[in-house]
């Protein structure tokens, strides 16, 4: 019991007293983008230009709430759901670029969910592009 109590506080203390400014925790987020069916290729190529290399496409359908569409009987429309993993810092510039594309032809929506943890240093490095940016961190 005593040992446990003595180890833990020093460990925490050390961590708090000496914050290393070099180490930046690069947070990852899961970006979910819903666009019209067959438009996903275009979006994925934009994502890849912005270094979001991991994307998966799932087929989905949207429930458009427009009265007119209901009358026409096409209230449900085919959609592509793109799941991509992206660094937090890359989201803002990416969203700036796809803002107009989404609005004009995608009739889509995009949102990101912060990830709380992940396993695998290699994968983490790949996702955060440690080699490109020369940022040494294995937090995750």
């Amino acid at each position: 019991m005593d040992k446990k109590h003595s180890i833990l506080p020093t460990f925490l203390k050390r961590k708090h007293e000496k914050p290393n400014p070099e180490v930046k925790v690069n947070k990852l987020e899961l970006m979910i983008t819903v666009v019209e069916r067959k438009k996903s290729d275009k979006f994925i190529s934009i994502f890849q230009e912005h270094n979001a290399h991991v994307s998966m496409v799932v087929l989905g359908r949207g429930t458009a709430p427009t009265e007119l569409l209901n009358l026409l009987g096409i209230a449900e429309s085919s959609k592509d759901v793109i799941l991509s993993v992206i660094s937090e810092s890359l989201i803002e510039p990416l969203y700036e670029e796809i803002k107009d594309v989404l609005k004009n032809e995608g009739r889509g929506i995009s949102f990101t969910i912060p990830m709380s943890s992940m396993v695998g240093v290699t994968m983490y490095k790949f996702l955060t592009h440690v080699n490109e940016k020369k940022e040494g961190t294995t937090n995750g």
Binding site: E88, G108, S110, I113
Partner: peptide, 16 residues
């Protein structure tokens, strides 16, 4: 969620 894009605020109140 931390970021969101593509929500149309102006016509939010209407049914369409």
């Amino acid at each position: 969620i931390s970021h969101v894009l593509g929500i149309n605020k102006e016509i939010q109140s209407e049914t369409t």
